[in-house]
């Protein structure tokens, strides 16, 4: 980040209790208190939430898209992890 640029924060909102916080956008703020205020003022104007998280964007560690195949493709062939893999007669009823 260049000097004099106000840091970026990622904003997560819990729409209502019982649901998890969901990423909804970002704001610029010099510190965490102002980031929370900004998130409230920007992202909850239409009653979108009951709780806010803000995280410095720089603190997020992301997987490398180059690793996409080795990370995620191996899971696709493990069909036996899914219930539909197992054949149970309909007569048994819901299982």
């Amino acid at each position: 980040m260049a000097k004099n640029e106000i840091p970026l924060w990622e904003v997560f909102i819990r729409p209502r209790n019982g649901l998890s916080h969901k990423h909804c956008g970002s704001v610029h703020a010099a510190d965490e208190v102002m980031a929370l205020n900004a998130a409230r003022d920007v992202y909850t104007r239409r009653g979108e939430g009951v709780s806010i998280w803000v995280v410095p964007s720089a603190a997020i560690v992301a997987s490398d898209p180059e690793h996409k195949d080795e990370n995620f493709e191996p899971a696709l062939s493990k069909v036996y992890r899914h219930p539909t893999f197992y054949k149970i007669p309909d007569d048994v009823g819901h299982m």
Binding site: N4, I6, A29, A30, D31, M34
Partner: peptide, 11 residues
């Protein structure tokens, strides 16, 4: 904006 950044540093 400068004041906000300066204060953040102090905090």
């Amino acid at each position: 904006r400068e004041a906000a950044l300066a204060h953040a540093e102090k905090r």
